[in-house]
Amino acid sequence: MSNKFDVSEAFGPDHAANYDAQFEKLHPIKDVMHLVLQAHLGELPDAARILVAGAGTGAEVRHLAAIYPNWQFTLVDPSEAMLAVARQHAQAEGFEARCTFRAAYVSAIPDKDLDAATSMLVSHFLTGAEERTAYFRSIADRLKPGAPVFNADLCYDTDAPDFPAVRDLWLRLMSRAGMNAEGRERYKEMFGTLFACHGPAEVEAMMESAGFVPPAQCMQAGLIRGWVTAKA
């Protein structure tokens, strides 16, 4: 991770406890990402093993586990507090036995030859191009050749003429999620500090150089973009 971002501070127990409710009013955007994810991974074997990088509270696992009852999930996140919430959901919804929880960075886990991976709203916290590419490579290194991957991040070319308009629209969406005026002003400053300001073409080049086939952008909702790809 970048030295500008402290996982233990940003995603500690207090944040983890409220994370699921924080953006509940933006749930339709999450639904779109989950629908694309389901379509991209839907042809996997019945007993597929899925790497969930930066799993957080496990939202995508909750979606997939209900549809594919034999899939196995490796949830990886450096925040123990976030994984604890993910485990609680898995226990409550009856799929804990199909999950492995690893409180670590992806680069530190021993798993290999997994069938697919998802990384949702994770890599934008890596503001350096080298560390972001290394993160994508750590995912590729743990997959079988040809394994499908879905990646979604906050991403925009901040030099693009339409960036201010899309950013302001996004901030209005944040208002609907309960963000106050002070929070919106801070959010404007986050690109290039807390969130990486790499444009779409840069992110795609990073993924390809990390060991994936050229990614295809398949969705956009405000400042969130999603790509489908596979291990080369």
Results as ranks from 00 to 15, higher is better:
M1V: 05
M1L: 08
V7T: 07
E9H: 02
A10W: 02
F11S: 04
D14G: 05
A16S: 10
A17P: 07
A17E: 10
H27V: 08
K30C: 03
D31H: 11
D31M: 12
M33I: 11
H34A: 15
L41I: 15
P45F: 12
R49V: 11
L51S: 14
V52S: 07
G54P: 03
G56F: 03
G58N: 09
A59G: 14
A59N: 09
V61N: 08
V61I: 15
V61A: 14
R62I: 09
H63I: 03
A65P: 12
Y68C: 10
P69E: 13
P69T: 09
Q72R: 11
F73K: 11
T74V: 15
T74H: 12
L75C: 06
L75H: 04
D77E: 00
S79L: 01
E80Q: 10
E80D: 10
E80L: 12
A81I: 10
M82I: 06
L83G: 01
A84T: 11
V85E: 14
R87Y: 03
H89S: 13
Q91V: 14
G94V: 11
F95N: 10
F95Y: 15
E96Y: 08
C99K: 06
F101P: 02
A103Y: 01
S107Y: 00
S107E: 07
I109Y: 03
P110K: 04
K112T: 13
D113V: 05
T118Q: 11
V122Q: 04
S123H: 04
F125N: 01
T127G: 11
A129K: 03
A129L: 08
R132I: 03
A134T: 06
Y135C: 02
F136N: 00
R137E: 12
S138W: 06
I139A: 05
I139P: 01
A140C: 08
A140V: 04
R142W: 03
L143P: 15
G146E: 10
A147T: 14
A147L: 07
V149N: 09
F150T: 03
L154C: 08
D157V: 07
T158G: 07
D159V: 01
A160D: 14
P161D: 15
P161T: 14
D162H: 15
P164D: 06
A165V: 15
D168V: 08
L171E: 13
M174H: 13
S175D: 11
S175H: 09
A177E: 04
A177H: 00
N180S: 06
N180V: 02
G183E: 05
R184Y: 01
R184W: 01
R184M: 02
R186V: 14
M190D: 10
M190F: 07
M190G: 09
M190N: 11
F191D: 01
L194C: 03
F195A: 09
H198D: 04
G199D: 01
A201V: 03
A201F: 00
E202S: 02
E204I: 00
E204L: 02
M207G: 00
E208Q: 15
A210R: 02
F212Q: 08
Q217I: 02
C218L: 14
C218K: 15
Q220S: 14
Q220Y: 07
Q220K: 11
G222C: 10
I224S: 08
A232T: 13
